[in-house]
Computed example of a mutant assay.
Amino acid sequence: MTANRSSAVMAQRHEAPDSLDDFPTPPWATRSLLRVLRTHGEVLSDQYAWEPACNRGYMAKVLAEEFAGVHATDVHEYGWDGQDGVADFLIDWGQDVPKVDWVITNPPFRLGAEFIRQGLRYARRGVAVLVRTSFVEGVERYDTLFQASPEAFVLPFVERVAMWKGVLLDPDVKVWDAERGTMKSPTSATSYAWLVWRRGEDGQFTSDTRFGRIPPWRRLLTRPGDYPPVPAHLRRPEGALL
């Protein structure tokens, strides 16, 4: 899909780079969602998706494996040439809004509820967000989001999704831990889940929430080339003793 250069798109937040939730999504985690959606009857090849926090494109590129088209935007420019434009998803898009069936993203945690509400406004078919499992807690989010707009699916991962700030790392490739002076496998103490909202045949979002678990699919759904080379600052220094 092509970039939208309208004045509405250009009226946006201006985030300092160090304020961004820069946690790239492992491709297998996105493929897990697509597998679940297909299981529930979604014909993704006939639909269009919007990834409004596209970062370096790791989620958008996976969505493009199955969707007819993917519109990828972000409030920040990360240097990925597949990004359709620097755009603030949370503005009032009016008539400039892209026509998409799904909004699928890993939103900034502090703006997660706002991203969901905006997605519910514009998605013709459904919304899916990758969030920390703790996101489902909290009275404020219940009052302002979940009470009126409950999810169709809550899908926690039984296997940890390793996400590191600013870099996508292969959990099977060890990196240098400068503090300890040793190599270690990338891991995460944070648990994640997909939350999915889905419209029924009547066009309304389903109000009954179903719980499911995403099996340990990391090895099954990881493909060659999914992970970039380990950045220099995480490689073992020359001469370092192990």
Rank of each mutant, 00 (worst) to 15 (best):
V173K: 02
T73E: 04
Y227Q: 15
A8N: 07
D208E: 14
P26E: 01
D96L: 00
T73D: 08
D81G: 05
D177T: 07
D208I: 15
Q47A: 15
Q83W: 10
E179L: 08
I214L: 07
R110L: 12
V161M: 04
T133S: 15
D18F: 06
T133G: 07
V86F: 01
L33S: 00
A193T: 08
V161L: 02
D177F: 06
W176D: 11
V167T: 04
E66K: 10
D226A: 04
V100H: 05
P171W: 00
R213D: 09
A189H: 03
G138P: 09
A193Y: 01
E15P: 09
A16H: 04
R5E: 05
F146Q: 04
R117T: 11
S207G: 13
R199D: 11
V70Y: 03
V196P: 10
L241N: 11
V86S: 13
K165R: 14
P186T: 11
G82W: 11
N106C: 09
Q47P: 15
A232I: 06
W176S: 15
M183G: 15
P150I: 11
P228K: 01
Y122L: 14
R35Y: 14
L145N: 07
D177G: 06
Q83T: 12
A53K: 01
R31D: 12
W80G: 01
G212R: 10
R210F: 13
A49H: 05
A72D: 02
G85C: 01
V161S: 02
R199L: 00
R199Q: 03
P156C: 02
V161P: 05
A8S: 14
V161E: 00
D143S: 14
I91S: 15
G94M: 01
L37E: 10
S45V: 07
F157N: 00
M163D: 10
T73V: 12
F135L: 12
M183S: 04
P52N: 08
D46A: 13
V154A: 15
M10G: 12
K165M: 02
E159R: 10
L44H: 05
T25W: 01
G41C: 02
F67I: 00
M163V: 06
Q204C: 04
S207E: 14
N106E: 00
V173T: 12
T2D: 14
R235P: 10
V136K: 12
W50P: 09
L44Q: 07
A232L: 05
R236Y: 01
W176C: 14
E65N: 10
F157H: 02
E114Y: 05
F211L: 09
R141A: 06
D208V: 13
G57L: 09
Y122S: 05
P150K: 00
M59I: 09
G119E: 02
Y48A: 08
E77L: 09
D92S: 08
G57Q: 10
A60P: 08
H76P: 11
P24C: 09
P231F: 00
L120Q: 05
Q147N: 11
A72L: 03
F153E: 01
P229H: 03
W197T: 05
F205E: 10
R223D: 07
R5D: 02
D170H: 11
